[in-house]
Design a protein around this nucleic acid. Structure first.
Lengths: 184, 184
DNA sequence: GACGAAATGTTAGCTGCTAACATTTTGCCT
DNA sequence: AGGCAAAATGTTAGCAGCTAACATTTCGTC
């Protein structure tokens, strides 16, 4: 049996997701969510210090940085990041699609959430940038390669969430191909 | 002589910029800014409906979309957007650097502002995407090309603001080159 | 069952932001 | 100059997200 903390957390997540889908993110109040979960606002904030974290709680993934670090340094930075991500994707399991899609769909519907999602990537972007710089790339190209790829990934996720027939892997592959100018 | 409205607006901008530089964006309160400008909070909000708009008030620029629309459709979407931007940059005058650099430096120092800046680009991104789709590109590649380029531009601006010796044009050129994998 | 620790509740308050209505200030016309 | 409509500003009240400090309950364990 799970600890009480985990159960409360799960209940909050479930209620929040449902309310967000029914009335939208901005239109839903944290007081409503707390009430629906049978809990105080304060308790909600102890589990999720910001409202956005009820939708965005993806932790940083070290597999990505490792995969990029493993790319040959003769390649241009953008190519290294793109190829690193392709490889990381092959390692990672395809995530449980349906719950992820529901969440991403909520993100797609709120510009505040989209902004928060991008801010969420900043940590990983910084690590990728640092990795590239360590490998001898100048600061600006490193940063550009990192942000461009994560922007592309985010766009892919948002687009994917709107089509229930698409497979996430295919969408991401297309996005990465586009970054290598393989599309017309 | 300027109207009273314009003078108040300018005073608010000046006071806000100064306070943001001295104590940071998050640490500065709109009440402080209003007081410094000799005005009520309400008046501030009438001029700038959101705190971020005291730093980010760049309007949408149709020159960019036009330049992209003028690119040959045989090229891949990313290349068209990159080349369109290079051309648009040649048309546009180099902006008054110093005030811009101060503002961008403030943006660089606040993740909330960075997020807002990205959200600011969404309108233009959408128009660029629509332009590409009109020209026959599929939805996802169009969107990816658009967001990747604007992410790169934003990164270039942020990086540029930290080095007072760099010329904006050069930094942007480097960023765009990186997107075409011309760097190692 | 008791006891320390973890989880939750209470109260109060700050900040960004909005709405509705009152007041002053401007610019203009006669 | 004087007066008048409109523009600009002020006042008050309130909501939502979020934080801090302190009190209370509940849990796991011995």
């Amino acid at each position: 049996m799970l600890g009480k903390r985990e159960r409360t957390r799960a209940r909050l997540l479930r209620c929040a997701l449902e309310l967000f889908e029914r009335q939208g993110f901005e239109q839903t109040t944290v007081a409503q969510i707390a009430a629906a979960a049978g809990v105080t606002e304060m308790t909600l904030y102890r589990h999720f210090p910001a409202k956005e974290l009820l939708v965005l709680d993806d932790p940083y993934d070290p597999v990505i940085v490792a995969a990029i670090a493993g790319q040959p340094r003769s390649l241009p930075p953008l190519t290294r990041v793109v190829n690193g991500l392709r490889q990381a994707w092959r390692m990672l399991p395809e995530p449980a699609s349906e719950i992820v899609r529901r969440r991403v769909r909520i993100v797609a519907g709120s510009s505040a959430l989209r902004a928060a999602a991008i801010r969420n990537n900043e940590d990983t972007e910084r690590l990728v940038t640092e990795q590239l710089v360590t490998d001898g790339t100048a600061a600006l190209p490193a940063r550009v390669a990192a942000v461009a790829v994560f922007a592309a990934l985010t766009a892919a996720l948002l687009e994917w969430s709107q089509h229930h027939d698409a497979r996430l892997g295919d969408v991401i592959a297309t996005a990465l191909d586009t970054l290598e100018a393989r599309h017309g």
